[in-house]
Design a protein around this nucleic acid. Structure first.
Lengths: 116, 116
DNA sequence: GCTAAATTTGCATGGTGGTGCAAGTATACA
DNA sequence: TGTATACTTGCACCACCATGCAAATTTAGC
């Protein structure tokens, strides 16, 4: 199969290769915040999280909002405090689904590429 | 646990949240190339792949090199033709490992966050 | 209502990255 | 040896983005 033909052929990959998601994860500061939040294991406020990295408070606020927009975090407001939490289940599921789709595309021994 | 403490506490996540990888996947053109290449299921030349997107040939060359640098593709030269192929197994493994690490951080019912 | 705390939102800035064109490099073929 | 093919690299340009500061917004507590 030609790559040009392959590009016109549908696969779950087309939706799973989400540029917005990967773009959100492609910044060191955002990854630091995500790692911090993930290892913490609970919902954290912007103030708490800003203690984890050296950038300005407003920058942290923007980064967290972006991660939430990408579907990596959830937001919940409690009084004047905003809590962010990792969407563990959803993110893990998305990555596993992507891995599965890649496996299905992978040509097995004498197999015929993905069945799309 | 405070997020600041959590940031100082080691986890497989620290290595799995690789900014270079996600950055490489964070561009629509690169994702198009990757999807095309993945669905194709075989090694493709730069010329073949440049037929899949509308950008200049040199841009495709650069994008493929970047994906290779990030560990997503492998390169192999045959004569004057350069073939790129998806590292199916490695990429899928990396994503599954990341999903697993996230799961381990996730607080179970009345559990105590990740055991790091 | 007033003040303080928590967060968001302009605004300006510096840097990085994606893109196209042209030139350069490497290899096959006659 | 010379020419064509496949690809890479230098260069310039433009857009977007991460950052910091300051002002604005929202909400709690007195």
């Amino acid at each position: 199969m030609d790559p040009l033909e392959a590009s016109r052929c549908c696969s779950p990959l087309d939706e799973q290769l989400d540029a917005q998601l990967f773009r959100a994860l492609g910044d060191p500061t955002r990854l630091q915040l995500l790692g911090c939040l993930a290892k913490c294991g609970r919902a954290c406020s912007v103030t708490e999280l800003s203690a984890c990295c050296q950038v300005d408070f407003s920058v942290v606020s923007r980064h967290l909002a972006q991660l939430a927009r990408a579907g990596v975090l959830t937001v919940s407001k409690q009084g004047r405090t905003v809590y962010y939490e990792v969407r563990y289940r959803e993110v893990a599921t998305a990555f596993r689904a992507l891995a599965r789709s890649l496996d299905q595309c992978r040509p097995k021994q004498r197999g015929t590429s993905c069945g799309c």
